[in-house]
């Protein structure tokens, strides 16, 4: 059975595409057959983060409109042969996607025996975001420890519970996973940033993972290699833990303790 996971947030710039790329790659590393779809029509970016931007010939909209077959449009990942990317159109507008069209593509992926389809939602709560979440079985709600992001994710949690196929058909609710990203334990300790517990209390659900703020995330996107593949980074390790938890494994949260500064830094600051 194919499981559809939407990665969403409401607010932009919180790490949806970074998360989609690492989640899809992590699932593929566990031997799952995975497709990751960019729903941000007009502002394609997943291809860059996945490092396949020069291999995009056909896109999601082409498939929806019958201008290309799904097979032609799926880009096989360079590193994992069971991972495929479906890019967003860069030239069409957001109305180019329809609910029927999206359903057709998801049905075809189901027939092709994909284990997981990861839907990278655009920011906002308009059509693209609605379509990305509509057919989902799981939702990963990406949130930063910051007021506007927390408020927007509460709004998204409300939409997941009411404006999706599962909600409309009265089926079992979408499984919601809260993922806290850009977390800085030092600033939390200093009382400058909301803690994991604060965010969990405000939103009323517990986190599936906490990704520490890390320089390696920018380095990974610069290189077009999902950060989960960076074995030296805490962010990559935290994404690996998160993928394991989504697959049902129990793992304790890591990287929540402040990093103590060395002697020189303590003396000279920095």
């Amino acid at each position: 059975m194919t499981e559809i996971i939407v990665v969403t947030s409401g607010k932009g710039g919180v790490g949806k595409t970074t998360t989609s790329a690492s989640l899809a790659t992590g699932l593929a590393m566990q031997g799952k057959k995975v497709a990751v779809i960019d729903f941000d029509v007009g502002l394609r970016n997943l291809d860059l983060i996945m490092g396949c931007e020069r291999r995009v010939v056909y896109d999601f909209v082409n498939v929806v409109h019958g201008e290309a077959t799904l097979k032609q449009a799926l880009i096989k990942d360079k590193r994992h042969e069971n991972l495929f990317v479906l890019a967003a159109s860069q030239t069409r507008d957001k109305d180019a996607l329809t609910q029927e069209g999206v359903e057709k593509v998801l049905d075809e992926l189901t027939k092709e025996n994909f284990d997981y389809v990861v839907c990278d939602s655009p920011a906002g709560i308009e059509k693209g975001a609605h379509l990305a979440m509509y057919f989902a079985d799981h939702a990963v709600v990406v949130v930063n420890p910051e007021v506007s992001s927390v408020r927007d994710s509460d709004r998204i949690l409300g939409l997941l519970a009411s404006k999706t196929r599962r909600a409309e058909k009265g089926e079992a609710a979408i499984k919601q996973h809260l993922l806290l990203t850009r977390y800085n334990p030092n600033r939390v300790e200093a009382g400058e940033m909301l803690s994991v517990k604060d965010v969990e209390e405000i939103l009323g659900i517990s986190v599936v993972g906490v990704i520490p703020e890390s320089e390696n995330v920018l380095a990974a996107s610069n290189a077009g290699v999902p950060v989960i593949l960076d074995d030296d980074s805490n962010a990559g390790a935290a994404y690996k833990d998160t993928v394991a938890r989504i697959l049902g494994e129990e793992r304790p949260l890591r990287f929540l303790e402040p990093v103590k500064k060395g002697f020189l830094k303590r003396v000279f600051g920095g």
Partner: peptide, 22 residues
């Protein structure tokens, strides 16, 4: 650090954020 007095420390504001969000 001995040079830290040169930098102004931001006021702890997470509590305010939490209360407003709640």
């Amino acid at each position: 650090g001995i040079l830290d007095f040169l930098k102004r420390k931001p006021e702890p504001s997470a509590g305010v954020a939490k209360e407003r969000l709640r």
